[in-house]
Design a protein around this nucleic acid. Structure first.
Lengths: 342, 342
DNA sequence: CTGTTAGCGCGTTCAC
DNA sequence: GTGAACGCGCTAACAG
């Protein structure tokens, strides 16, 4: 006695089970369930009830096999542990989840071999498309070209010019940051950046330098490159205060660096934002809101970037694929660490 | 002229394409590619070459349809944004990725409707199993019982007794923390916890209280419940120092709280760890290593928890499903904020 | 309106 | 050793 099909063990109900129970053919059952025309409403009702009774769930595998598309996409990340992949991934999952597509998640852990392995598996599962999320904004090699499905690169652009990449606008971010500090009436602005090996650091510096120059201002001291850590922020801020005590604003390469800078300013008795304004990049919520005062930061809109990548992939699946690098705008989130000079 | 099948547009090569090119039947081609016996080695070589030439990739959809299992699992999270889901997810992905199974990622965003929607989609895609990752350690409702595949609950246990859940041992974590502080020679220990509404907070407190009692010690002051924030840590530490200046160790409900406590201790001129030892929970790397001094913390081993959940699901798919709640051990990660009294 | 037929791509019997 | 035939579950043509 098969119960209401709810229990363990019994294999899932199939369309022909439903048809049998409803006393119709599988074709009719199919039409009824899919809301097609040419089915008597009473018949349809009977089929629906039978399906409900069996808790029938159509086998997507069979549907996909027939339709030639699976309604799935692959999301390939280089390192989940990095906190930049996650919001992108959320945005993409969000954009897809709203539709009908399911997402395969693969973490290559920065290993090229593992990446090929995952790509092969995804191709075999007939994903309709692929999003490749980089771990830094530096360009990365394109996927092996045995891949026949549309690919969108997110965060890290592809090295191949023919590919479509969606990346944050770090240059614009640097520019916006300086413009905000200028709007706060600051004019003696120093820049403590992060790791020089990252294009994100260099681009932000370039944007900031450009905006300063346009305003006819000289930066205070040289740009200080180091690491993306609080410790670096503390150390660099100490040096900065020793050499250029006149500074009235510090732009930091990341929120973590900014936290370190805040610590040193506090230790040295400089008030923030009254004496010195501080701001960071990334708008890492818990870091930016945990400090005293809370930290003004440039949000890179990564979740939106993920959504955009997903939509671009959608388009590429249906229509012609787009090409080139598209940059996403950032936005300044103002908190207590910056304020107009009174 | 179809090129080496690498280009866009042309539909993926099928087994019969390979067979045709190799001049054999699909049956033979299948055997050859799958390494079955009873195929002449020269024939096999010919098939393999044909497959390579066409960059043939077997259609997993068809294979799954035939085999009755898809080699996929669903990973259902409540909130990706929370930082606890991620390591669990990584561990699970790791354990599966090593094998042959691909992972569907679904984020329900704490919405029950969306969760049902995702579960329905996963069932329809014939996942072989499901891992449900909670957003807190508080018990959560079981999935609707129309689900015929094995389910393992991770982090948040299922409310239904018959389900299998893998959760961190917060009571043991509290106990281990106190034992470490005792080993450092501390005896006047206060506890600044997190949000009382979380069982994680209450369990850690319970474990800590038990260990203190066994050591024949009274806690310093009442346990202070608040929020999981730095701000709460700063405020609570201020109160604590006012009322119980004799304190020589503070156990904090989380690393964030501990960061706040460190700040206040520094402001008040208390040396860490010489005068007061401080430790937290979660071992959130960047938070714990960014502070001065670096923070001793209890690591909840979430990645291992994810791996364990994955393995448990594996077992449940093949053999009989296990039942009940399994707790995972934690471990103390010692850094500069705790040290023996000299 | 309903039922029968023919595949989607593959692995697995069985004959040859 | 090899190949023809069947079926996994489903939908899209037709035929009735």
């Amino acid at each position: 006695m098969a119960g209401p099909a709810g229990s363990r063990g019994a294999r899932a109900a199939t369309l022909s089970d439903v048809a049998k129970l409803a006393g119709v053919s599988v074709a009719t059952a199919s039409k009824a369930l899919n809301g097609r025309d040419h089915v008597h409403s009473r018949t349809r009702a009977r089929v629906l009830e039978a399906a409900a009774q069996l808790s029938f769930s159509p086998n997507s595998l069979a549907q996909s096999l027939l339709a030639g598309r699976s309604g799935t996409v692959g999301l390939l990340t280089s390192d989940l542990v990095g906190r930049f992949s996650l919001p992108i991934l959320m945005g993409a999952e969000d954009a897809f989840g709203a539709g009908q597509v399911s997402v395969f998640l693969c973490d290559a852990r920065g290993d090229a071999i593992r990446e090929r392995h995952h790509v092969q598996a995804l191709v075999s599962r007939r994903v309709d498309g692929l999003i490749v999320v980089g771990s830094s904004t530096d360009p990365r090699p394109a996927l092996a070209d045995g891949v026949d499905v549309p690919v969108v690169y997110a965060y890290a652009p592809s090295e191949a010019a023919g590919d479509l990449s969606i990346v944050p606008d770090n240059i614009g971010a640097g520019r916006m940051a300086i413009e905000h500090l200028l709007a706060c009436g600051r004019s003696r602005i120093a820049h403590i950046s992060g790791d020089r090996d990252y294009s994100a650091a260099r681009d932000r510096v370039a944007g900031a330098a450009g905006a300063l120059e346009e305003a006819g201002l000289e930066p205070v001291g040289e740009v200080a490159y180091g690491t993306w850590t609080e410790g670096w922020g503390r150390a660099a801020a100490g040096l900065l205060l020793d050499r250029s005590p006149e500074v009235d604003a510090v732009l930091c390469g990341s929120d973590q660096v900014a936290r370190g800078v805040l610590d040193t300013l506090r230790d040295r008795g400089r008030r923030v934002p009254e004496d010195v304004a501080v701001m960071g990049f990334d708008n890492w919520e818990v870091v930016a809101t945990g400090s005293r005062p809370q930290l003004t930061s440039v949000d890179m809109n990564l979740e939106e970037l993920g959504r955009t990548a997903a939509r671009a992939l959608f388009d590429a699946i249906d229509d012609e694929p787009a090409r080139g690098v598209r940059t996403m705008d950032c936005r300044v989130v103002i908190r207590g660490s910056t304020a107009p000079l009174s």
